[in-house]
């Protein structure tokens, strides 16, 4: 009896643990505070923050989303300008590659800097730099601020993925646009479809065969199991 009671009391806490852990599908870029120290490797040549101007190197305000070699009036190397003309825009990955080994990305770069070998240092400086570019809260189109990975659901959760409750939760994200009563005005109805057609359509958005950007984005973050759960849920809706 005592055992019974204890397990009952523990359960809510345990349940919370089981479910809180897998919730973070994205991770922060790095530690921006630690990045201020890494910045000392850069500050001899670069300025950042209010009133920053270009010196030996270009100023780095707004570097995320800026075209490579894109500051007017700065005397860049030919190679960096060429990359900019090829369409290189500074994103998290591109900056990471450049800072790891500047010459790998731009052979004749004028940045005489050996690169930051450790991933931690690069993550931290990137988090530091990100603070001085547009904030998506104010400019929603600004570049991302975190790294995402497909959610790896622990087995306990996977076991329930097929169930309609999961489908129902996932579907609550769709019903902001697709009406539950099947109304079809400006946005198509997605209720009562044969599951297979539904799954095929969602995968077509996911792999970007279908062009619509909203749906590419929505489908792009769903796993196969999640698409299946949604297909099941929307087929059976009352």
């Amino acid at each position: 009896m005592l055992a019974f009671l204890t397990s009952q009391i523990r359960m809510p806490a345990l349940a919370a643990l089981l479910f809180v852990a897998p919730q973070l599908a994205a991770e922060d870029i790095g530690d921006a505070k630690a990045g201020t120290e890494v910045w000392e490797h850069c500050s001899a040549c670069h300025q950042i923050g209010q009133g920053a101007t270009s010196g030996i190197g270009p100023h780095l305000n707004g570097i995320f989303g800026r075209a490579a070699g894109g500051l007017e009036g700065f005397d860049y190397s030919k190679g960096l300008i060429r990359e900019g003309n090829n369409g290189l825009v500074w994103s998290l990955d591109k900056l990471d590659a450049y800072l790891e080994n500047p010459k790998a990305l731009v052979s004749d770069t004028r940045m005489s800097f050996d690169g930051l070998e450790t991933k931690k240092e690069r993550d931290d400086i990137l988090a530091f730099l990100r603070q001085f570019s547009d904030n998506p809260q104010n400019i929603p189109e600004a570049p991302p601020t975190a790294r995402t990975h497909e959610i790896v659901l622990p087995p306990e959760v996977l076991a329930i993925v097929g169930d309609s409750e999961y489908g129902e939760y996932l579907a609550s994200e769709c019903t902001t646009c697709h009406q539950i009563d099947g109304a079809n005005e400006g946005i198509p109805s997605i209720t009562h479809w044969p599951q297979e057609d539904f799954v095929v359509a969602m995968h077509a958005y996911k792999v970007k065969v279908r062009p619509h950007p909203v749906m590419q984005m929505m489908a792009g973050r769903l796993t196969d199991e999640e698409i299946a759960a949604l297909a099941a849920y929307f087929e059976k809706l009352e």
């Binding site: 919730q23 973070l24 599908a25 994205a26 991770e27 922060d28 998506p136 929603p140 189109e141 600004a142 570049p143 991302p144 601020t145 975190a146 790294r147 995402t148 950007p213 909203v214 590419q216 984005m217 929505m218 792009g220 973050r221």
Partner: peptide, 21 residues
Amino acid sequence: VKVGATYEATDEKIAKVDGFI
């Protein structure tokens, strides 16, 4: 016209992970 994005929770905040305009 439209602008949109998806977001996930990190330890620190709701963080943007993808988007379009």
